[in-house]
Each structure stands twice: as C-alpha cells, then as structure tokens.
C-alpha cells in the first residue's frame, strides 16, 4: 500500500478515544501526529537503503514484524501510555494494510516465514516505477480507495472537516 497509508493513518486517529480509553481525542493534533508517525514508521526502513547502508531486501523485514511493534510501544510506554497504545495499533494496522502485497511480511521475525494475501504484485520499495506499477493493478485501487471512502465516513461521523 502506498497513498492509502495516508487515509488509513487518519482513520486510526479517528478511533483514538476508543483505542486509548479516552486519553486522546479523535482527529486531534496529538492523535493525528502519533498515528501518522507510528503508521509510517515501518516504511522508514527505506532510509538506510537509500543511504546505501542496507540492501533492497531489507525493506519489509524487521520493521514489518510484531517484534518491532512491541519494541516501539514499549519505548513509548514510559513517555505516554496513550501514545504507546495508539502507536501499537497504528503499526499493526500498517501490517494489515501491507498484507495484500505479494512481497509478504515476516510478521514473526526472527522467524523468516512471510505472510501475504497476494492481492497485488509488489513492485519495489520506492521510486516512480514502484508507484506507477502499483496502480496498474486492481486491488490497490479497490483497497486504498476504500480507505479514503472510509475516512470520509469517519469525518462525517466525528463532525470534522469537511462536515464541521
């Protein structure tokens, strides 16, 4: 998933009160910031690849595992319980959003078995070709587009822009 992550992160932020037991308000700056950063965190594994510190195959490995989600949440826990819980859910939702890609996710790293729904073919971690070729396939439009529609409905239900 590429652009759809934007909508999915915002949808997660809309459920912040339910997820955090009322600690963080829906669509608040805090909810959006935490869910966005946590949700995009796994994809930051392309930075060491761009810098030449890691191979292309590093993408979708450790950062896309439950171990990473747990570690990130444990680090956040002493700082803010709400951030830790919302961050954990955002990370797990990222994995669910990436699960349809053919590359598969090694969710139980260091066990390297990859899990995939194989709804679309993975075409690389970054760059114009990866972007364009992703959207030549049906399921990316279907699922990512649905995420934006879902966001629209959540905005309506929560009474935020464009319904404020």
């Amino acid at each position: 998933m590429q652009l759809g992550h934007v909508a999915v992160a915002l949808v997660v932020s809309s459920y912040a009160p339910e997820i955090t037991g009322g600690r963080i308000a829906a669509f608040s700056g805090e909810a959006v910031a935490v869910s966005f950063i946590a949700h995009w965190l796994p994809n930051f594994d392309v930075i060491p690849i761009w810098l030449g510190w890691a191979k292309d195959s590093f993408h979708c490995t450790w950062s896309h595992s439950f171990l990473f989600a747990i570690a990130a949440s444990v680090i956040l826990l002493p700082i803010n319980v709400g951030w830790a819980v919302l961050g954990f859910v955002s990370l797990i939702v990222h994995y669910l959003a990436d699960l349809p890609s053919s590359v598969g996710l090694p969710l139980f790293m260091p066990w390297k078995r990859r899990f995939t729904l194989n709804l679309w073919a993975d075409t690389g971690h970054s760059g114009w070709f990866a972007f364009k070729s992703t959207y030549e396939q049906a399921w990316t439009w279907l699922l990512e587009g649905s995420a934006f529609v879902f966001l629209f409905i959540r905005a309506y239900q929560c009474g935020v822009w464009p319904f404020a």
């Binding site: 396939q137 049906a138 399921w139 990316t140 439009w141 279907l142 699922l143 990512e144 587009g145 649905s146 934006f148 529609v149 629209f152």
Partner: peptide, 15 residues
C-alpha cells in the same frame, strides 16, 4: 463522496 468512490469503483472495474 462520488469522486472518492470512484477510486474503489476503479478497483472493481479493473478486476
């Protein structure tokens, strides 16, 4: 809403 629904609509059409 119609514009946004065009995205999953395109997904269904591409199937």
């Amino acid at each position: 809403l119609l514009v946004l629904c065009y995205l999953p609509g395109m997904g269904i059409a591409l199937l």
